[in-house]
Design a protein around this nucleic acid. Structure first.
Lengths: 205, 205, 205, 205
DNA sequence: CATGAATGAGGCTTCATTCAT
DNA sequence: CATGAATGAAGCCTCATTCAT
């Protein structure tokens, strides 16, 4: 379109286009042609801002990592100190994660599907950030185990894996495909499941 | 090289090679050259058995679907009628799924990573099969809810999503990367988590 | 950057930059980006002074041709009339040519390496100028042949070719690469070689 | 076109085409499209035999180096032991060099114009070979200086430079452009020039 | 005058597919 | 049946040139 934009705006516009395209076709199948078409710029313009296809993927990941970092920071601000509010705090936490990926569906698709395969460093970067979260939760779990709130045979590492697995699956197979996913319902189900499992009170299998 | 094999054997040999290659490099990055090299076959030979690259991917998925069907069948044979054995039955079930993917790591990688992106129909096919399983479990859950074993506010659909999510995540991030994964430990953690959640007895959040 | 200069000065600055860049990388490998970077000028500014990349090359050649013309003029001023001074006159001539290219190494590199390939007219232009020189020398040679100074079987055309070939080769492979080439030594060797060849006095092969 | 050739034949055909194209347009200006058009093969075929444009240039240089090696070997076989035949031996030597480049005009063009700029190793390789020749000549010169055939103030290094310079210039500006160059004339002029310079007998400048 | 963002033709390279042997 | 040389569409990237500010 020939319009001249500020460097940052144009770059942002290209990253936006790349996110849409990568989410829709996957990194490998997406072509530079797709991205520039989505952005409405010429072929050469793309290379003013990114050195290569991989480079724009890095920029997409950077965008995600930035958002993710904020998400993690706000998560770390959550305190589980008041025993009376543990349930509602956890519920809010789950909801915030669901909302986060619901707001960024395309990024979620990219990240959960193929990010690790394309940018080897990415997982390290994310786990570096997530690890703070996991640590936060582990400490909470251990504290609760000491107080006697949480069973002592629960492995915090496994718990983290369960949390990640469910979050990713729910996002990929429920949140993303649905135009209006019922995140509160998911959060409620999830919290009561984590709290008590499925067994009815007074029984054991 | 140049050996003459029965049509089925040669085709199987090529599918084997394709599975290894797709798992290692991903569908798009894998080339026909990689596959024929892995199979020790000439370029033209490949096209005697498959019409295209996509065609061999279909064959790979067919291979998976076949194994998966067996797996589902054997799962359907499981009965949860005896209340005293519910726990151990569930444990066996979890273990069998873990063992299944542990035996077929390469297929698991392909299926969990990119199958849906490449073969849109595939998820339908798998869910078609899985749906029988899910139905089986849903019915069991409902039955248990009636008897009073299982909480009545548990949504069976969500439960299935949790089960799939955890299974996939554990397979991708623990079973596949580990040469000797401790499947029993996973099963134990998982069952007691499903049974009771994390809350210690006598408390509620 | 951004400085406003008189048209001629700015153009000269760009030609200077182009000479450096063409000498260092060759015409095809040199990019406009290289030239404007070397000149410290913006992209668009380049096209205020030159219509194209080829255009700036023409300007470079013009610069050379101008210097070359001066060189030829000063050469034509040389007189070989005094038989006693023929040797020293020739030595001065050789030295002046060597000094000329030693002062303009970058231009020499460009001209001797690829000028003819890029600007087909250039050789004509140069030979037009050089021809005057050659003519000058030829006449001198013929005169000397008549007087009996120079062998009558020497072909003046071949002589000119020898002179050019040695000059170019010496410039490219000795003068240009050396920071402090010993031009006098070259001139001495060259003159005594031209005078007497290699044969020792009193012998013939 | 579509014909299947033995690997060596096809490669040779492509090198032939590349030589023509590089000689006509220069390495930088030549495109793969030019080469495959000249060879009459498809784009992909080129990459069956060469990994890149540079790669085919290496192959061209290899072709030259091989021929050059033969040329040098046969030159080394020449003996200057018989003083009565020095002149005719030298004449044969010059003629053989001229014939060599006359037979391989395109290669000569490539080699003398841009080989060193493109393949940095190439000059080393050639000088490695040529050095044997130079050594051979130097020794001959020194021997002749001892016997008193050759002036003792002649610098053998300079002599080699003169020889190369004249050879290259004559090849580029006389042999290559002429359909029927008179090599014998060149050789005669050259030998008598080397022998005695231009000065008539009995005089000195 | 000067700037530098935008352009797109053109070059290099890959690889799924065909087909003569 | 098996082979592997040949094909060419399609992708990535560069860079000379234009033009709105």
């Amino acid at each position: 379109m020939g319009t001249i934009l500020s460097k940052e705006l144009r770059k942002g516009q290209l990253v936006d286009a790349a996110i849409k395209v990568f989410a829709a076709k996957g990194y490998r199948s997406a072509s530079i042609a797709d991205i520039i078409e989505a952005a409405g710029v010429a072929r050469g313009t793309f290379y003013l801002y990114f050195g290569s296809k991989l480079d724009v993927f890095h920029a997409v990941m950077d965008r995600y990592v930035e958002l993710f970092k904020e998400r993690v920071q706000s998560e770390l601000g959550r305190s589980y100190n008041n025993p009376l509010r543990v349930r509602s705090t956890m519920r809010e936490s789950v909801l915030d994660w669901l909302r986060f990926y619901s707001r960024n569906k395309d990024l979620a698709k990219i990240v959960f599907r193929e990010a690790t395969a394309i940018e080897p460093d990415y997982e390290q970067r994310c786990y570096g950030l997530l690890e703070e979260c996991f640590q936060h939760w582990r400490e909470t779990v251990v504290k609760f185990q000491k107080i006697g709130f949480v069973r002592t045979d629960v492995d915090p590492g496994f718990l983290n894996m369960v949390f990640s697995g469910v979050l990713i699956h729910v996002v990929l197979h429920y949140v993303i495909p649905n135009p209006n996913p019922d995140l509160e319902m998911i959060a409620d189900q999830w919290i009561s499941f984590v709290e008590s499992g499925v067994k009815a009170r007074g029984w054991h299998f």
